[in-house]
Write a protein that binds this DNA or RNA. Structure first.
Lengths: 164, 164
DNA sequence: GCATCTTCCGAATACCGTTCGGCCTGCTTT
DNA sequence: AAAGCAGGCCGAACGGTATTCGGAAGATGC
């Protein structure tokens, strides 16, 4: 089964760790010694901290933020998906394929009446229709879908702190 | 006004550019010479390409992917926001603050009956209620909101290619 | 076929990543 | 309270990398 959590228990983050994560969340390609300066530790210490954060799963990876228009996929949409039945099997069969469908940026498994929310990027409205028809409505577990175009996507903080 | 697009016109991406972006989208901290090897150009050329991609706005930045649970914000939600009126002023007043609200990961300006969709991370359900009450329902431009919990978020491709 | 412009490469150097030994701090043991 | 122990931090050293620059190769226009 898939219950095993691949995360080392939980040594909580101290202030240095949080600073490292905060900086890397905004600038993943900063040089290690510059990062060390910024958070106030030696470069070697900083390196060990970053490695530890990665090993513990706090930092999952580093990614470039790409302009999808430049890649020829200027149109984005949110697609609500309601499954035909809410069995564990249908959920599993949809969940296992959804993130890999072409153009899918994120998949949200939702509480509430809609089971899944798909954030997708496509070349144009034809491609969007093709995506829904070819991959969603033809999927045996999918009941209904509803597609909403996204005018604009704005990024918020990627290092959320509790708002008092 | 805000119409000026800060993007150099559009020299379309060649195969090398696309390979660079594809690799960096998955591993933003790869060494430049390793990246150069992978895409088949000299290190100096690769460096110039990456710089050009950044200058052109194709690559917007580099980020660490952080486990929000480790930061103490294990709960995520999607909040649909309907404005009181759909004037340009109300849109502008909401759009200008929404991405900066505490815990907001993404803001989507939507076509359709719901005007905005907020993807947020919070510490617990109390913090979620506080967020909605303190920042949304009290905002003068906000009419109704609807909050849906996210059971699970799965990342799709961050380098979408057209699915034929 | 020549001039020009662009792009790529490879070498050189300055910079950075990474390892390692030793020190300091705080905790346990007696 | 002193000794012993463990963990983490630092700084120096070295091996590897980023970045610059001059020149060569290719493309473009006349």
């Amino acid at each position: 089964m898939l219950w095993a959590v691949p995360k080392i228990p939980q040594p909580p983050l101290d202030e240095v760790d949080r600073s490292i994560v905060r900086v890397l969340a905004q600038n993943a390609r900063i040089a290690n010694n510059a990062l060390a300066d910024e958070v106030g530790v030696a470069a070697s210490t900083c390196l060990a901290r970053v490695r530890s954060l990665r090993d513990r799963g706090v930092i999952r990876g580093f990614q470039a933020d790409v302009d999808l228009s430049a890649l020829g996929m200027p149109l984005q949409a949110m697609i609500s998906v309601r499954l035909r039945a809410h069995t564990r099997e249908q959920n599993e069969s949809f969940r296992s394929v959804a993130p890999g469908l072409p153009g899918v940026l994120e998949v949200f498994h939702m509480a509430g009446s809609d089971d899944y929310l798909l954030h997708v990027a496509v070349a144009d409205s034809d491609a969007l229709r093709d995506f829904v028809v070819d991959h969603l409505t033809t999927h045996p577990a999918v009941g209904q879908t509803q597609t909403n175009l996204i005018f604009e996507r704005m990024a918020g903080s990627r290092f959320p702190e509790p708002g008092r």
